[in-house]
């Protein structure tokens, strides 16, 4: 981040703090938050007390603490409107966008804020999510025989809107036990990238196959046991398991686990899911 950016961010943060200062005059009671303070070496929870302000979200509370009580508290945030996916963290052990979670949801409960645990911690509430961008680079990119811009019909692209809603907050990656508990990062792409692959696989103009990548490669879709935690935490309500992972698993089953489909490919040849036309005879995915 440049110095100018840092200054702008600091001013924005102070502006928030001023607003909270004004509002805190009218606040009633206080709320206690326990926030993880530390880095990759370790750390512990530190308790803070802030004045209650009606409608306050957890990010407001964290920024209030940053402005008034702990100036060195690290938190990543940007839009404060649940659009950028920057402020992902864990509240009481569940991934949440700090800017979309109201403090009053936890009335009568302890509020414990931690960074996303599926990734290395940089400092306090900031995790290092760069592994996700490495996975993104391993994904087989969109490729078409035609030159863009494409003419496409609504009926062919309506399933592509939902995966495009993804804001890359990586909370689905964080809650996925394959990554979080079993640390299968080298051989498992994770829910966010199944959403991405579903979009690519179902795109009517794409000509690539990603089934081998998903089954044998870094995709590792076999590790997913569809327990739907990713769907539960998605802040933009993408039905990740039902609309991305299971359709991809069904396509993998078509290709690798269905003897009738295999026999049909041997007899009738491979048919393109795009056109229905026979594209190969010997059972190879690419029609060779």
């Amino acid at each position: 981040m440049s110095e100018q950016d840092a200054q702008q961010k600091d001013m924005a943060s102070k502006a928030h703090a001023d607003v909270h200062q004004d509002e805190s005059d009218a606040a009633q009671g206080t709320t206690r938050l326990k926030i993880f303070r530390g880095d990759a070496e370790g750390g512990s929870e530190v308790e803070y007390e802030i004045p209650n302000i009606e409608g306050m979200v957890v990010l407001d509370a964290v920024l209030y603490i940053q402005a008034h009580q702990a100036g060195d508290l690290a938190v990543r945030w940007n839009c404060k409107a649940a659009h950028c996916g920057s402020c992902s963290a864990e509240i009481n052990g569940k991934p949440k966008l700090l800017c979309k979670t109201r403090v009053e949801e936890y009335e009568g409960q302890e509020i414990r804020v931690h960074p996303m645990r599926a990734f290395p911690v940089i400092k306090d509430l900031v995790s290092d999510v760069k592994w996700n961008y490495e996975v993104a680079r391993s994904t087989i990119p969109f490729q078409s025989d035609e030159q863009a811009p494409f003419i496409m019909y609504e009926e062919d692209v309506e399933r592509l809107y939902e995966p495009k809603k993804c804001i890359e907050c990586f909370m689905c990656q964080d809650v996925c036990h394959v990554l979080r508990t079993h640390h299968k990062h080298p051989e498992f792409a994770g829910p966010r990238f199944f959403v991405r692959n579903q979009w690519l696989e179902m795109h009517p103009k794409d000509t690539q196959s990603r089934l081998e990548y998903l089954k044998e490669g870094q995709g590792g879709i076999g590790y997913c046991n569809i327990t739907k935690c990713c769907t539960e935490v998605c802040p933009v309500n993408i039905k990740i398991t039902d609309n991305s992972i299971i359709p991809l698993k069904e396509r993998v089953a078509d290709e690798y686990y269905d003897p009738a489909k295999w026999l049909m490919r041997k007899i009738r040849g491979r048919r393109s899911p795009k056109t229905g036309a026979v594209v190969g005879r010997n059972g190879n995915r690419n029609g060779g």
Binding site: D156, E201, M202, P273, G276
Partner: peptide
Amino acid sequence: GRVDCYSCVR
């Protein structure tokens, strides 16, 4: 679900 292009197939 397995069809990618409904306008392209019979």
